[in-house]
């Protein structure tokens, strides 16, 4: 197990997301460093997949830009290694199971350990399918970050009880992308999860403004912002690091203003 959970102590966590190799290697390295400087608690790095079925158009396009840059799975590890020379910000990967499966569960988890990647978010690996990767992850001290959604219902208990690192609470049904409306029962959903576990929760999917981040951080222990940052990268390209650092600072301030951090 990693020490991801500790990050959520005494303050609300902010977890931004970028796609690796979008638009190129150096920019991604700088983006990770900029996110850390701007005040990210954990940086979530996406390993591109040809068919990202949980992702909306913004992240799909980022994956395509990364493929155009020639991204390989190994490239992503090299990006993290390069960033590691300048930052020790905790990093988790978001990718699809086939990418990990093809690399080999053991080899992948060991490579994560080597690069200091603390956790894996795999949207197409539900609770029932995690057993095949769990031994490799445990061995390497890597958390499998589970997702809990507004439709999880009776499944929440078993997912929450088995969780480590943090729990990714999906804010709304469907796919990633900026949204202005969220599932109205998020407070109850988080309360329900907390019945079964002390593992911290972070809300993501669709959150894109500092104000929304503040609200979500008020409900859960942290907030994840993906598409909004990827969108900045799309617009700013090589100038993205400066722009996302500014954005991250504004979200940091907003998140810090929300009350009720765990102790």
């Amino acid at each position: 197990m990693s020490n991801l959970s500790d990050i959520f102590k005494n303050h609300k966590a902010f977890i931004p997301f970028v796609v690796a190799d979008d638009p190129d290697f150096d920019t991604t390295v700088k983006n990770i460093i900029a996110l850390a400087k701007g005040g990210a608690d954990i940086v979530e790095v996406g390993i591109p997949f040809s068919d990202p079925i949980a992702d909306g158009p913004v992240i799909q396009s980022a994956d395509l830009r990364a493929f155009a840059a020639g991204v390989r799975t190994e490239t992503v590890f090299e990006i993290v290694d390069a960033a590691r020379k300048q930052t020790d910000v905790p990093i988790v990967f978001l990718t699809y199971l086939n990418v990990v499966f093809k690399y080999g569960y053991d080899a992948f988890c060991q490579r994560c350990q080597q690069s200091g990647v603390a956790g894996l978010v795999i949207p197409d690996m539900p609770y029932e399918s995690r057993d095949e990767i769990l031994p490799a992850a445990t061995q390497a001290g890597i958390d499998i970050i589970p997702l809990i959604t507004p439709t999880s219902g009776h499944r929440i208990e078993k997912i929450a009880r088995a969780a480590s690192g943090f729990i990714y609470v999906v804010s709304s049904l469907g796919i990633t992308g900026e949204r202005n409306e969220f599932f109205t029962g998020l407070k109850d959903l988080v309360a329900n999860i907390r019945q079964y576990t002390d593992v911290p929760t972070a809300i993501g999917f669709g959150v894109h403004t500092p104000d929304q981040a503040k609200t979500m951080a008020g409900i859960a222990d942290g907030v994840i912002i993906g598409s909004a940052i990827v969108d900045i990268v799309a617009k700013e390209k090589q100038n993205a690091p400066q722009a996302i650092e500014t954005f991250t600072k504004s979200v940091r301030t907003a998140v810090d203003a929300s009350q009720g951090a765990r102790v």
């Binding site: 609770y127 399918s129 439709t151 999880s152 999906v170």
Partner: peptide
């Protein structure tokens, strides 16, 4: 075989 699908669809 198996079930490798987002959590959102598991209950369904």
């Amino acid at each position: 075989g198996g079930q490798y699908i987002p959590e959102t669809l598991m209950t369904e």
